[in-house]
Amino acid sequence: MASQGTKRSYEQMETDGERQNATEIRASVGKMIGGIGRFYIQMCTELKLSDYEGRLIQNSLTIERMVLSAFDERRNKYLEEHPSAGKDPKKTGGPIYRRVNGKWMRELILYDKEEIRRIWRQANNGDDATAGLTHMMIWHSNLNDATYQRTRALVRTGMDPRMCSLMQGSTLPRRSGAAGAAVKGVGTMVMELVRMIKRGINDRNFWRGENGRKTRIAYERMCNILKGKFQTAAQKAMMDQVRESRNPGNAEFEDLTFLARSALILRGSVAHKSCLPACVYGPAVASGYDFEREGYSLVGIDPFRLLQNSQVYSLIRPNENPAHKSQLVWMACHSAAFEDLRVLSFIKGTKVLPRGKLSTRGVQIASNENMETMESSTLELRSRYWAIRTRSGGNTNQQRASAGQISIQPTFSVQRNLPFDRTTIMAAFNGNTEGRTSDMRTEIIRMMESARPEDVSFQGRGVFELSDEKAASPIVPSFDMSNEGSYFFGDNAEEYDN
């Protein structure tokens, strides 16, 4: 783990906690998980779902989305002020799938948001429990990260689609708070800032007046979040320049895209947490497990152990491969979309394939898809080993990566060399080191050039047997250095459309 220093740990961010010791953190995270579980059980009762239907990941996603929508204050306010045809701002819903006479049927349900809020609060001892809501947002974000390569979004903001390893959390809503900021990748933060800068260039009043003052505060806050992700002084200094700019424009845009590229080699610290679907927490609570009393951590053995003992089902389209669908969801559960496939294969105990080789589309089923041909199958979400999630980018030494994705962002704290394609990355730096950030740029390029592919990161860190909950005997895996390590390699994943 990167030293926490003055930073709060993510469990504290996750639970809005002030400084807590490890036991208190485990208890408050457990409380959050228990609340999600209780809410899910109650919703299944309301909807009269069978046990099997309640364990269907598509039903879980609909129920999670309903509660997130019920608590989305800004959108609710907007919907009330701008009524649109056929949208009731006070209601929320989605597809629920039921097994009827041996076939899967889709039923569109509609609930009062007020009623959903009441059920959620009741499951969370009367609190709004925003930490639990954020947790579900991060699960949705991790699922998107594993399912889609955001080529269009990258290109629109002047970045290269091969930089997708920097895009963790790119679909997280803005209201996801400190826990959300911690899991956002460098590219995601750059993209958010670039969008602001572009608006400022096109709209003279963007930075002016009372609204402009708020915009400015948001801009500086985002700059500080991004600065905190960088691990070298030169990158941090460049972020200070971007933040202090009187009138952010093209120079800042250039600096930010430069920094994003540099992060492929001088990786930023991005938190990883295993956020599971509500249909995993519900049955665990129903079986009598007391998360608050037992304590829970999002970055240790607990999620692995929970998945070892969970039964989750998914709808499967006619030509999809259930094992591939399982891999997709497994990666999402562990926030591992940008991790090295060699490491993932070792931990999972079966070969993890790149996205383009998977015969599976996303987990969600569109409303126009034919239910007649839908089957369902068990998702295999178990693992051979477990490993500690990392909050750091690993040290800054790398190795060759593949054509589709030119770097990785480690999820697990496991000893290995970190793949990246130096030639491709360095070719993108057209040696432009003039301007006010020239000395920093020169320094950053120097550090990137001296990074050695064969150097090892996370020295001495290994994986653990599932029986080793105290992480007492690390097993340090050895990897084939020459092997392909990137998930979005030469990829044809669908595009994420909101």
Rank of each mutant, 00 (worst) to 15 (best):
S287Y: 03
D16L: 00
S9E: 03
D290H: 09
G249P: 06
A401T: 11
I388M: 15
I57P: 00
I96R: 02
E443R: 00
P283S: 14
Y40K: 00
L298A: 06
Y52R: 08
C44V: 12
R389Q: 05
T411C: 08
E454H: 09
N144H: 07
I25M: 10
G86T: 14
M196D: 02
I138W: 06
I445N: 00
S165V: 02
V299L: 12
E107C: 11
N368I: 09
I408P: 00
K184V: 11
T424K: 01
E254A: 09
P303N: 03
Y97Q: 01
N142W: 03
V343S: 00
L110K: 08
N247I: 04
G249D: 11
R246P: 09
E192M: 08
H140R: 05
Q20H: 09
M167L: 10
D290W: 04
N205G: 13
S473F: 05
E372C: 04
F206L: 11
A451C: 03
P283N: 08
T424G: 00
R152V: 01
E73T: 00
I138G: 04
P283D: 00
T134G: 00
V67Q: 09
R317L: 00
R55F: 13
D468G: 11
K7L: 00
L79I: 11
I445F: 00
M238I: 09
G35C: 10
T378D: 00
I347G: 03
R195F: 08
S287E: 13
C223H: 09
R382C: 01
Y148S: 03
E80F: 06
Q327D: 05
G158V: 08
Q12N: 10
L49R: 03
S165A: 07
M238F: 09
M13P: 00
I217W: 02
A178D: 10
T373K: 05
G30C: 03
G460L: 05
N430F: 00
A85Y: 12
R416N: 02
A471V: 10
F338Y: 15
T257Y: 10
E443V: 10
H334N: 12
V29L: 10
L306F: 12
P419K: 00
T45A: 11
K357I: 01
H324P: 09
F253L: 15
V183S: 13
T433S: 14
